[in-house]
Design a protein around this nucleic acid. Structure first.
Lengths: 195, 195
DNA sequence: ATGCGTAAGCAACATCTGTCGATTTATTTT
DNA sequence: AAAATAAATCGACAGATGTTGCTTACGCAT
């Protein structure tokens, strides 16, 4: 599994078009396969075949299946965050927007219904949520004696956990409604130290 | 991977002493091996050998390595909770006690230093924390319109995430101090709806 | 104590995994 | 345009994985 907090290291600023192409093809292949079968049931051989790449090429980019899943999830979620322009600058409603992003992502990526739950998505999504918070915290006068990192981590885990619980609930309430609930729960985490 | 919320189903009320013996031996073997090498570097063959069991017997009890790790972690953490008599009845300080439990567990189980971080511990520990909260919530007059399950899940993820961040920090502050911080952050989650 | 049910042991299987060295092909640099 | 650099392919390897059919040994209830 890749490290938790260095997205830059995880995707080491690939420039060579061949590298980008291979990685994109692998991710696309995985997405396609995930619509057909469970993650655990997919072999690296299959992924490579589906991507029309040699199996050895896979290992050139990712140490194992999980690393690919993680990289792919992080990339897709990061993309969603970028598309929506999520940031912590426009402070109010930011938490709700982020929570909605996580909920939507979980729901949207539901190629295969029950499969997502058994995936190590937390290691992909949580760091991204965390970084959004941290980026926002940087724009702000630092409260002395408070570690913004800890705050960001705690909030990110709380949001993801809540969103995950929502997602695995049979008859879900609308994502927007859930996001509001999550905001109500998570906002106080930040206020807890703000004063 | 086992399901998230049915500990009873995960360990299906084993009665046959042979079953208990085998599972115990497998867990003990894993613990012993974890003190020597990383989880990823341990093969099922090794675990079976160390447990003086046939490899096929392993598959009789767990579908894969992760399932064993998860079952083992859940069992050990549950044990720690029981030893300390953690519950949510004695409401005040309960959150801190639970947070301390998680921190201590992470630190205590550090047979091999860096290995714990790469493990899917969340699926083992979080449900236990959650159940402690839920058990406590049962003893309490239910606040209408509030889903105690959601609260428990969110708090459990927040606590675990914070504890995990603490654990992976190079120069850690004492666990007690960290537990206090966590309490400060997490308590408001519950108050957020108690209104 | 005897016998039924079921767990544990055993051996063999097809497949997957991760890694290697050697070769070919595609970029970038000069 | 040619040379240098680096990625992709290929075949092969030892080992691990998950499963199966069969036999042996244990635990429990009669």
């Amino acid at each position: 599994m890749a490290s938790t907090l260095q997205p830059a290291e995880a995707a080491p600023a690939a420039v060579d078009p061949r590298i980008l192409r291979s990685r994109r093809m692998l991710m696309d292949a995985l997405i396609r396969l995930l619509n057909k079968k469970e993650f655990d049931a997919i072999s690296i051989q299959e992924i490579a075949d589906e991507a029309t790449l040699n199996r050895a090429t896979f290992y050139l980019h990712y140490p194992d299946k999980n690393a690919l899943l993680q990289a792919m999830t992080a990339a897709r979620f990061r993309d969603l965050v970028a598309r929506r322009g999520l940031s912590f600058s426009n402070c109010d409603g930011a938490i709700r927007a982020i929570a909605l992003g996580v909920c939507d992502y979980l729901a949207e990526t539901t190629g295969c219904p029950t499969a997502l739950l058994k995936m190590p998505l937390e290691t992909s999504i949580i760091p991204v949520v965390e970084s959004v918070f941290l980026e926002g915290a940087a724009h702000r006068t630092p409260t002395p004696g408070v570690d913004p990192t800890l705050l960001a981590t705690t909030a990110a885990w709380a949001i993801f956990g809540a969103a995950r619980r929502w997602f695995e609930t049979p008859n879900r309430i609308p994502a927007e409604q859930m996001a509001a609930k999550i905001e109500a729960m998570v906002k106080p985490i930040f206020l807890s130290v703000k004063r």
